[in-house]
Write a protein that binds this DNA or RNA. Structure first.
Length: 497
RNA sequence: GGUCGGAUGGCCGAGUGGCUAGGCUCAGCUCUGCAAAAGCUGCUACAGCGGUUCGAAUCCGCUUUCGACCUCCA
């Protein structure tokens, strides 16, 4: 098993990954709140961690990947009106909360499939784990780190900080938080403004409510992840992932809750992806600058010049390291589209190459270079999942493949072993690890027969120097998005836009 | 205000001390009936100012500037 290193947000440095149980890896990723349609910003963590879990599998780990669905009313507990996001939105849409949550969950899953994100092993919902959350809250109360007020339960952060390193993950200093001048409503029940809700009493008009030892109410936001991750991955598990914006307060709170409930920190490695920005600003509901999945795929949004294929989005995201911000623009998305098309066509060409099978390379220098490019892919992934560098290497190889077809690279330049390595590298990294798929599904035989017939007619016309007919066929097909290419060897291939 | 992280060629983006990532765009060339595709070549950048060093995009300091978090957020 190759040595995997990646950046641990908790220690703020790259570390060698050692799983708790050799050969097994547990990964928990904060999933979406299904009170609205997912947007481009959401694509980043789920594609990032899809690649993480794919690569762990590639390294031979048996991975249990858990990604939750937040379908319980987690509310803006520090916010102005303590709104239950799910309940409030449901009222607006005149939907049952369950109905709304189902709708957006389905849309989310639809997006995930299009992005070719593999399904998590377990996708627990917050509403399905109320009992576990209540049990965990009771334990925290028993241990003296939570208190009940008017049917709500709060975590005593100040007391926690006296005995544990509160704020280490997010670099927060408790005194600064206590001193903050920001005045927020709905704080009067708390002993300190830094305390966060574990359970919230439900006012009469609140739709989502469950019976608890403290009356009818609903769980706080942070507790669901702690309850569900420990249930399915254990009290201490390997990797917890999510967006950087969840560092505080969400993940900091998770650490505090779990540490008290279980007597030790919950996670060995924390991973955080950076944000997608738009005009330099984070894409988010509160900024009103989101582009939803459906808008992205249809192009139906004022900021979009055209629709973008899910695979183009995936490629665009993976061309950047996951810890860097990624700025949205039509220009960069279009660049990604062209680039991906070229790379994928080279890959298809590679699969068709019938190599003479000479044991010795005709061009030893090139042969060695190709071997190096291939082998480096593993090193790059093992160094903090550097998908950008993997893609760069695949692009280095593309001209070699195209050159073999075009005749610029001698057919025997590479040894048979190198060709085999090349085919394997593209398959493993481009398809299995990066999870890329072709932009269009493979055409069925009938379609191919029709196009082949047209190509045949055109080839005949060209032989007779009847360029009017040959150009007519080519141009008309081009109008329909089918591009013909006269290859150097006299054959004709086609691509579909 | 506090904490943290950025500033790389026309654009997007890797990269932590020497070996000019990669992509897109643009220009020229090869191939070609023409075109497209492909290949080749060119465009040598690291916010500014100091410092450390034989040598810095990469380390240190200061300045300018952008952003994230501090409130729900991927």
């Amino acid at each position: 098993m190759a040595e995997l290193h990646f950046y641990n947000s908790y220690t703020r440095q790259k570390e060698k990954f050692t799983s708790i149980t050799p050969g097994y890896a547990g990964l928990y990723v904060c999933g979406p709140t299904v009170s609205g349609e997912s947007h481009l910003g959401h694509a980043r963590p789920y594609i990032t961690f899809d690649v993480v879990q794919r690569y762990l599998k590639h390294l031979g780990y048996k991975v249990r990947y858990v990604r939750n669905i937040t379908d319980a009313g987690h509310f803006e507990e520090e916010g102005r009106d303590a709104i239950d996001k799910v309940g409030e939105k449901a009222k607006l849409e005149k939907l049952e909360p369950m109905e709304m949550v189902h709708k957006y969950t389905s849309l989310f899953h639809y997006g995930m499939r299009l992005f070719n994100c593999e399904e998590p092993a377990i996708e627990p919902t917050a509403t399905g784990h109320i009992i576990e959350q209540i049990a965990m809250i009771e334990t925290i109360i028993e241990k003296g780190y939570a208190y009940e007020v008017n049917g709500s339960v709060y975590f005593d952060v100040k007391k926690y900080a006296e005995n544990y390193p509160y704020g280490k993950l997010s670099g927060r200093i408790l005194d600064d938080l206590l001193e903050t001048t920001r005045e927020l409503d709905g704080q009067e029940e708390k002993r300190n403004k830094v305390d966060f809700a574990l359970w919230k009493n439900a006012p009469p008009e609140h739709i989502q409510r469950w019976i608890s030892p403290w009356g009818e109410g609903f769980p706080g936001w942070h507790i669901e992840c702690s309850a569900m991750s420990s249930k399915y991955l254990g009290e201490t598990f390997d990797i917890h992932g999510g967006g950087m914006d969840l560092l505080f307060p969400h993940h900091e709170s998770e650490i505090a809750q779990s540490t008290i409930a279980h007597g030790h920190p919950p996670v060995n490695y924390w991973m955080h992806n950076n944000m997608i920005t738009i005009n330099g600003k984070k894409m988010g509901k509160s900024y009103n600058n989101v582009i939803k999945f459906s808008e992205l795929f249809s192009g139906n949004h004022p900021l979009l010049e055209q629709p973008y294929h899910p695979m183009v989005i995936r490629f665009y995201i993976l061309q950047t390291h996951y810890r860097s911000t990624l700025d949205f623009s039509n220009e960069s998305l279009q660049a990604s589209e062209r680039a991906f098309r070229r790379l994928w066509e080279a890959y298809e060409l590679l699969q068709k190459i019938n190599h003479p099978g000479n044991a010795d390379a005709g061009d030893k220098t090139l042969d060695q270079q190709v071997i190096t490019w291939c082998n480096e892919c593993e090193d790059f992934m093992c160094d903090d999942f550097n998908t950008a560098k993997v893609i760069a290497n695949l692009f280095e190889i593309a001209p070699v493949i195209n050159g073999m077809k075009g005749g610029q690279v001698a057919a025997n330049a590479l040894s048979a072993n190198t060709i085999t390595l090349l085919k394997k590298t593209f398959k493993v990294f481009l398809e299995d690890v990066l999870g890329m798929q072709p932009l269009q599904a493979v055409q069925n035989n009938n379609f191919d027969k029709v196009i082949s017939l047209l190509i045949e007619i055109r080839t005949d016309a060209k032989k007779r120097k009847d360029f009017a007919t040959s150009d007519q066929i080519r141009n008309k097909l081009a109008e329909g998005g089918i591009l013909l290419k006269d290859e150097k060897d006299g054959t004709v291939s086609y691509t579909i836009e």
